[in-house]
Design a protein around this nucleic acid. Structure first.
Lengths: 177, 177
DNA sequence: CCGACAACTGAAATTGATTATCATGTTCTC
DNA sequence: GAGAACATGATAATCAATTTCAGTTGTCGG
């Protein structure tokens, strides 16, 4: 005997069953705490005439709950644990939206590596020290350098919207080893 | 009637005829001015037990004759005009060698763009202002920022080997437009 | 609540820069 | 000048990221 129960699911053309219920009950819209960043994203989407979807909220929520740097692939894995049925494509697309909305920032520390993302508000105005041997990454702030950057830009008629500064070298552990 | 003349050519397995003579008579080794950078490259190759070849000299020569930034693809096109029969693969390989030899530096100004290369001695200790609208790139030097970078690194136990600093914004033309 | 339509989704295909493969060619050393 | 090691170039492979496309779902006006 074969018993098949399809309960409020969305069967896609390729045979995938999206766990709609689980996803829906967990999203911010349905009772959970709607944090400010999700609200910011939703506002951005509404302003642009884009749609607020379960998948976007799921990706955004997991992203906002993550500290430090995370790649699209890693985020996909992490999202899949809580909200299976969200595709890697959607993770990429949502990260792109988060960047556009000014909520995420993309970085790439090595030429041949994949991009990593971090929350814009914690990313703002900090730069990175990268150990070329062990890959260790240290974040730092240097307001004086920022000031000089502004001055240099002004001298050349530029207005600065963003900057990237990375220092490559050896950390103390690798230098003594 | 079919007449085939093969004149001191190197017929590869895929039917390509490399114009060996033309290439040879034009290389630095055969009478032309051997500039210092080519000599540096040759010394590097010799030290590493690698070989000095016509192709490597051709790519290096054209690269050294180029000012500013050039991509591997562009360099390939440019080399092909003077020295046809040099493959794109070899251009990539030679640029890699030039980097290792400390004669070239690779940069990547946009996340999704191809890498561009510039001569190391002109690249050293200068950074870039990039217009996010028109793509204009302005180079600048700011020794004071370098000094501060060293200090910051030291404070975190790092020794600086290299750095990357890019300021993104709008140039005067794009700002007023 | 309903319908319609534009936006969204995810799997698979595609892209594009770069690298690996491999059969043949070339350099350099003795 | 013989041989071993390295180099070459066409092609295939790689890999993150994007595009495609058929099917699905938000959103807005009634």
């Amino acid at each position: 005997m074969i018993l098949i129960i399809i309960f409020n699911s969305s069967r896609t053309a390729t045979g995938h069953f999206a766990p709609v219920n689980r996803l829906r009950t967990r999203t911010a819209n349905n009772g959970a705490i709607m944090n400010k960043r999700i609200a910011d994203l939703n506002k951005y989407l509404a302003d642009k005439g884009l749609k607020i979807t379960r998948q976007r909220e799921a990706v955004a929520q997991v992203f906002f709950d993550t500290d430090g740097h995370i790649s699209a692939e890693e985020l996909y894995t992490k999202v899949s644990r809580s909200y299976p049925g969200v595709g890697l494509t959607t993770v990429y697309r949502t990260l792109k939206l988060l960047k556009e909305a000014g909520l995420a920032k993309e970085r790439r520390f090595a030429e041949d590596s994949q991009g990593v993302f971090e929350k814009e508000d914690t990313a703002r105005h900090h730069d990175h020290l990268i150990c070329t041997r062990c890959g260790k990454i240290v974040e730092f702030k240097e307001p004086l350098i920022e000031k000089l950057q502004e001055e240099v830009a002004q001298r050349h008629g530029f207005s600065v919207e963003d900057h990237k500064m990375e220092l490559y070298g050896l950390c103390s552990a690798c230098r003594t080893a």
